[in-house]
Amino acid sequence: MTFDVVVEVRLRPGIADPQGSTIERALPALGFDGVSGVRVGKSIRFTVTAIDESTARAEVDDLCHRFLTNPVIEDAEVILSVVSPAS
C-alpha cells in the first residue's frame, strides 16, 4: 500500500517560539487585533510504501523521533492517507 504522509512538526507546549511571538507582535499594526497564541512549525510531506497502515505508521513515527523532530523541543503530528491500496 502507498500512503501520502504529512508530518506537522511543532514546538512543544511551553517552549518559547521567537518566530511565533514576532509574528504575533506584528499583527496589530496590520489591524488584526484579535489574534493570539501564534506558533510556527513546519510541514514535511512524503510518500511511504508499506504492507499495511500500522506498519507505515510505525515507520513514520520512528522517522519522526529519530530525525524529523528534535524531541527535546519538538512534537510531530502524523497524518496518513491511502493513495493506492495495492502495492
Binding site: 517552549i15 518559547a16 521567537p18 518566530q19 514576532t22 528534535n70 527535546v72 523541543i73
Partner: peptide, 17 residues
C-alpha cells in the same frame, strides 16, 4: 553534539530572531 545526544538540551533560534 546536542542532536547526537552527547550533550543535553537543544539550541533554538535566538530570542528576538
Amino acid at each position: 553534539l546536542t542532536e547526537a545526544g552527547l550533550l543535553p538540551g537543544a539550541l533554538q533560534k535566538n530570542a528576538g530572531l
